[in-house]
């Protein structure tokens, strides 16, 4: 099949970027979006041009490395699918696709379709530890967990940290990601001892990173490859409101978002 890819090309954060059109004549409909870019990159390399930079690792939809906007929708038009799992047969022959990187102040630009998502790592880091006994592996049934709780925690834990929620949100909010991280431990009995503190700290870090505020419109869930439900955002609000009250005497500090690129040193 034929496709035209219009891709955002920008060498580095300091350079001026622009969209470049790449017509492709021989796209195999069974290829994934990333394989399609691989094919394009091979032909670019043959012509001596700079290949398009994009992030990828597992290519099976579980690591959260990949992701960019395809014609205005994060991870493309197919619901619950990362770009590495999105096969080209879902597009029409002759379609024109616009590929853009995630746009967020909190995700500093790196190159072409790559942005720096370490803000997410710092939010997870701010959550701190979970009290577990060390030593031998605990008995599997030592702590009973109800089926419904286990399912809800598992649903939240499915988040792969891809950043599509932030990219799709008109407010650039990271509420779905942070909510998923707060919920997946907060629902389980093992997560109870640090539940208040974890919520307060992760929310504080999310704030320090400069993400926008949630307006509960659900664009994030709509594009999330793991279909994380909006419920986790309510969960975050709940745990934060209780936690902020009960931990009111604690001094909470955040990790300063120090992004090397931002300060001009590599």
């Amino acid at each position: 099949m034929k496709l035209t890819l219009t891709i955002w090309r920008q060498k580095d954060p300091g350079a001026k970027g622009k969209f470049v059109r790449y017509p492709m004549d021989n796209v195999n409909p069974e290829m994934s979006m990333l394989e399609c870019l691989d094919v394009l990159n091979e032909s670019l390399a043959e012509r001596g041009e700079e290949p398009v930079a994009f992030e990828h690792d597992c290519r099976e939809g579980i690591c959260g490395s990949c992701g960019f906007m395809i014609s205005g929708v994060a991870h493309g038009p197919l619901p619950a699918t990362t770009v590495c799992q999105l096969t080209m047969r879902h597009f029409k022959d002759g379609e024109e696709l616009v590929l853009e990187p995630w746009r967020s102040r909190s995700f500093p630009f790196v190159k072409d379709l790559v942005v720096d998502r370490r803000a997410f790592d710092r939010i997870i880091q701010a959550g701190g530890y979970v009290s577990v006994s060390t030593g031998n592996a605990p008995d599997g049934n030592a702590i009973p967990v109800g089926k419904e709780e286990a399912d809800r925690a598992m649903d939240a834990a499915a988040c792969i940290g891809c950043g599509a929620c932030v990219a799709a949100c008109p407010n650039g909010s990271a509420a779905l990601f942070t909510g998923a991280k707060i919920a997946h431990l907060g629902i389980l009995p093992q997560g109870q001892p640090e539940r208040d503190r974890r919520a307060v700290r992760m929310v504080a870090q999310m704030h320090a990173e400069g993400f926008g505020s949630c307006t509960n419109i659900g664009e994030c869930t709509g594009v999330c490859p793991k279909e994380i439900p909006l419920e986790v955002i309510a969960r975050m609000n709940h745990d934060y409101l209780y936690g902020a009250w009960r931990e009111r005497r604690q001094v909470v500090t955040t990790i300063a978002p120090a992004t090397d690129w931002e300060f001009g040193k590599k």
Binding site: R122, V203, A208, G212, Y240, V252, T253, I255
Partner: peptide
């Protein structure tokens, strides 16, 4: 890899946070 800078800043309280 998370880069933790040595600088730490005070977190926003209830009235300062988006959630509050």
């Amino acid at each position: 890899t998370a880069v933790a800078s040595p600088r730490e800043n005070r977190a926003p309280g209830f009235w300062g946070s988006t959630n509050g």
